[in-house]
Design a protein around this nucleic acid. Structure first.
Lengths: 194, 194
DNA sequence: AACACTATTGGCGATGCGTCAATAGGATCA
DNA sequence: TGATCCTATTGACGCATCGCCAATAGTGTT
């Protein structure tokens, strides 16, 4: 058996891409490190060598899955609340649509839901909440306001899953629901909560 | 070793209660069938005999965890929308508070998030959505309306977790957020979505 | 007291994971 | 070009868990 020797970065990247594909297609428990190694054309021990434990590898995969280019977040329209809400929701739906499969795998069924994974997802949600708050013009919100925004992001995630997995709602309906919910939250809840 | 012989129902019940306790305290992967058997004072093979595979046992556990006495759902106040919304939210928060640990384990971190488990949770969410819709006086809603209500239940679950795990929000704030969101949804989204 | 029914046991085989000493690819240098 | 060194890579060992099934032993019945 002829073996090929790669730069550590390249090998790591290759194994990671295989893992992303497999964990995106099947749930955690149904993907063995043997599978990853075989598809990468590599000994199983090498996977452990680069990523430590299997859970560590999965955490890396989830991190990549949830990492999202937030360039678009920097250049949001200046208009009134409805315009800003609409555009941030559109941005979110675009992201989810583009990475739908891996995104569903990371947040919904197919994951692992252990404590560490939960932390990674929580961090991503918090990041998204920051983006939403910034889009609303609030750069340094009160803790309660930030917490409620995290809940809103949860609604967005949940609704996106409902949309993509069940197919009952149209994108326009999802958009309307999320925009309305966001505006209502800002107008009716935030003023009283602070 | 003296062994005790029980009625199948009793033995099954006993093992199940042990499993509920363990799966409520530790995530799926960290609970072995050996643990369950040991704590139940029983051979490991017996667990398989009564519940089949480990996942089957876990599914049974999640079902029990999510099963909720919906007697209170039958007798909801007759008042206007705000009153009805407030009482259904209160009912939900009461349930979550009472079964908080097992409830968090079933819906959030600590679970397994495989496809079958996801189905069980989805079913429970759908059941809760039915309750909400009934509280709103809608017994046979359009599919889109039902789907949006499922999303709302998702918001409620997410917010409850935010509340119980992070402790940033107070119960009153959670209540206000959920009631407002529900009313907004009914008033602003449902009329246009149908 | 002997029997029959079946709840219960304990061990077998398979699979997956983490680790580590041994191996060999390939760049460097004489 | 051929010897040498560094380290990327391998393969196997030990351990844990799981599903399965034939053997065993409670317990009510005759």
């Amino acid at each position: 058996m002829r073996r090929r020797r790669l730069e550590p970065d390249a090998r790591r990247e290759q194994i990671l891409s295989v893992a992303i594909r497999l964990f995106g297609a099947k749930p955690y428990a149904e993907v063995s490190t043997t599978d990853v190694a075989r598809e990468a054309g590599v000994a199983r021990g090498l996977v452990n060598h680069y990523f430590g434990t299997k859970k560590d590898l999965y955490l890396e995969v989830v991190r990549v899955m949830l990492t999202v280019p937030d360039v678009a977040l920097e250049q949001l329209p200046e208009g009134e609340l409805p315009e800003r809400a609409s555009s941030i929701v559109n941005w979110f739906l675009d992201v989810v649509t583009r990475h739908s499969t891996s995104w569903l795998a990371a947040t919904g069924a197919g994951g692992m839901a252990d404590a560490d994974v939960h932390d990674v997802i929580t961090e991503a949600v918090d990041h998204a909440a920051t983006g939403v708050l910034r889009a609303l013009g609030s750069d340094d919100p009160a803790p309660a306001m930030r917490a409620m925004t995290r809940s809103y992001v949860g609604l967005a995630i949940w609704t996106a899953q409902e949309w993509l997995q069940r197919g009952v709602l149209t994108r326009d309906q999802v958009h309307a629901l999320l925009v309305t919910a966001l505006i209502s939250m800002v107008e009716r809840v935030f003023p009283e909560a602070l």
